[in-house]
Amino acid sequence: MSLNDILDSLFPAGHAVNVENKVISGEATTAKGTVAVLGTTDAAAIDHAMALALSGFILDTIEQHPGRPLVFLVDTSGQALSRSQELLCLNGSLAHLASCVDLARRQGHASLSLVTANAVSGGFLSFGLMADRAYALADAQVRVMDLRAMARVTKIAHERLVELAATSPIFAPGAESYVRMGAIEAIWPALSAERLVSALEEVVILDKQDIRQQLGLLRQGRLLANDVVRAVLDAAAG
């Protein structure tokens, strides 16, 4: 599915979006008004230039269009893997991008992300998972690492991981695991302008607290985190 198909399906009323170096930026018309559209395409491996293009566009939007909702389209294979990128502190540019998404929230910009194809580790952390809410298309790949690589690194038999993945969302790759654990709100069976508009309506009035742990417990995918956070909050002061 091409980016243009995605944009046409989500924004039938019109969009003006630029793609440069796998970075998407622009705006689109929806039934809820104009939204900023940004993100990455073609399984981008996020590097400094991409992170700074996204963060710069977010800052422009905050300054020039106060309150305009942000719609992130996520297709990232993770972070760029190179020595020159690490030399300049790639984690710093990704943190800067995450800070800009966070600032937009504090300044009253609702945000949602839609995983269109891939969402992997550092690339997903820096913007997709920073949005108020995340969604994924049905065939999207969401993961830290595939099970074969995980078997290699952890030295646990691949068959054993496959067996456990069938019952545990804790390390089974896939958007469904992230829904059960509270980090993705819902899986969209298909691209739909109506779904996007109702998601925007919900996100605009959303409480801005991070409630992913509660959702993970409600959906029975993450049974411990919520209680541990509560226990730390409620423990007697020293």
Partner: peptide, 17 residues
């Protein structure tokens, strides 16, 4: 990695916190 999805989501929660 043994708790990969839980770890990734927890780091996202730490970032916001």
């Amino acid at each position: 990695l043994h708790e990969a999805n839980a770890g990734l989501i927890a780091i996202s929660e730490i970032m916001r916190a």
